[in-house]
Every structure is written in C-alpha cells, then in structure tokens.
Design a binder for these strands. Structure first.
Lengths: 119, 119
DNA sequence: CAGAATCCCTCGTGATACTG
DNA sequence: CAGTATCACGAGGGATTCTG
C-alpha cells in the first residue's frame, strides 16, 4: 500500500549489487557451497581472469555481501565466505532464479512454435 | 530442494531483462501508471535522451515485457503499456525494491555511526 | 510527435605478464 | 597462492542535429 511513486523505486539499489558478469554465480557458490579460497572460485568460474575475479570479490566485500579473510602464511591463503547480511539476498535470488527459469522456457517455446510455423 | 548446482543459476536471465539504466523505472511507470506515450515517458524520466529511451523501450518490447502500439495518424501517436507477461515481474521487482530499500537504510546507518565515531 | 543518425566518451571485462 | 600492472576493446549511454 505504498510505492505509488516510481521515483521512489529502490530496485536499482539491489541491481547495483548484482550487476557484474560473475557476481550472481560467485554469491551462489559461497551461499550454497560455503567458504572457498580464491583458487577454488577461479576453478569454479570457468573462464574468469584473476583480475576480474579480484574486482568482483572486492566489490561484493565492500557491500558486505561476502567476507574476505587473509591468513598471513606462505604461500598466501585467502578465504571468502558469505556474510549473514549476504544471506538476506537468498529470497531475492531465489525469485529471480525462478522467474529467469520460466522466462528461459518461454523463449524456448517461442522458438519451438516459430520452428513449427516454418515447417 | 534443488538448485544445488550454481551452474544452473538462472538469475542472469532475469538480470538481463532489468539491466539498463532506465529499465526498472520504465517498467514501474507502465506497471503502476498505465499506458503512456513516448513523450509522457520522456517527461517522467528526467534526463533521458530520445535515443536512449528508444533503445530501452525496444529492448523491453523485444522481451515482450511491454507493448508498443503505433497509431497511423499525423502527428504520430505511439503508446506503450505493460504486457500481461510483464506483470509477472511484479513480485520480483517488489522484492528487489524491499531489499534495496533496506540496503539503503543500512548504508545510511553505517554512515551515521561513522559520523558519530568521528566526533 | 516520435523517433533516426552521428559522434563521442566512459566503463566493464578480457588478455597477458609479472610478483611477494 | 593470490593477487597487481598494463594494454586493449566493445558496448552502453549521452549530446546534438535532423526528419516524416
């Protein structure tokens, strides 16, 4: 019973956190796969470069979605994990996942009917 | 009870629709404000250029989130409205709005405590 | 009125090489 | 191992001008 005024739209605040080619995947990995090291993540996200992984992780850390823990050992050991606050994103991501999945199937059906029409 | 595998993450499908500097606002305007003409939207979205508005509208139309109706009159009259399918985004946007709003307040509180600590 | 056309510039991401 | 440092490039969006 509010939000009549689109100028008060706060969707962009959430979008800003999620925008980044690998961010949703990173969050999902830490959210469901638990704590992971830098190299674990890089292995999981096939194709990502160290530079890009670093910046995406730093941005998520800055937003307090993930936690970065550095162990002062040689060789270096850095562990990333989801924060309690980051976990609050779960319902949002879940819904986006559901809608995205439905959207994908819709696209496939459309292609299918196009295919049939062209027979 | 599924979605254990982040590789199956479909969040990006939803993100893809929403990404675009003005898209959430455009959707909200049509979703809650009803049918609008091109110039109405341009007036509502202060700062957007005709070029950008055009491309964002075309992309949303291509995804069938909005409908574009051209009336063959002089001067031209084009009306944009949300589709039934576009309306299915409402729960998603609502949740993103809620989370974004909470996130914003969290940021403000953080700044506030920083302010206090610096006193 | 509702764009189309053009030019321009920033930003995100990738490729590659190097380091404590 | 976990990055940092450079270079490069394509895409998204803005400014401006023009048109049926």
């Amino acid at each position: 019973m509010e939000k009549k005024n689109p100028d008060l739209c706060k969707v962009d605040n959430t979008l800003h956190i999620l925008i980044g080619k690998w961010k949703p995947l990173i969050i999902m990995h830490l959210m469901f796969g638990g704590t992971k090291r830098f190299s674990d993540l890089q292995r999981a996200l096939t194709g990502i470069t160290t530079k890009t992984l670093t910046t995406q992780l730093r941005e998520l850390e800055e937003q307090e979605i993930i936690l970065r823990v550095v162990y002062p050992v040689v060789p270096p050991r850095v562990e990333y994990s989801i924060t309690e606050y980051g976990m609050t994103l779960q319902p949002v991501l879940h819904l986006m996942h559901e809608w995205g999945n439905a959207h994908l199937e819709r696209q496939l059906n459309k292609d299918q009917s196009t295919f049939n029409n062209n027979q």
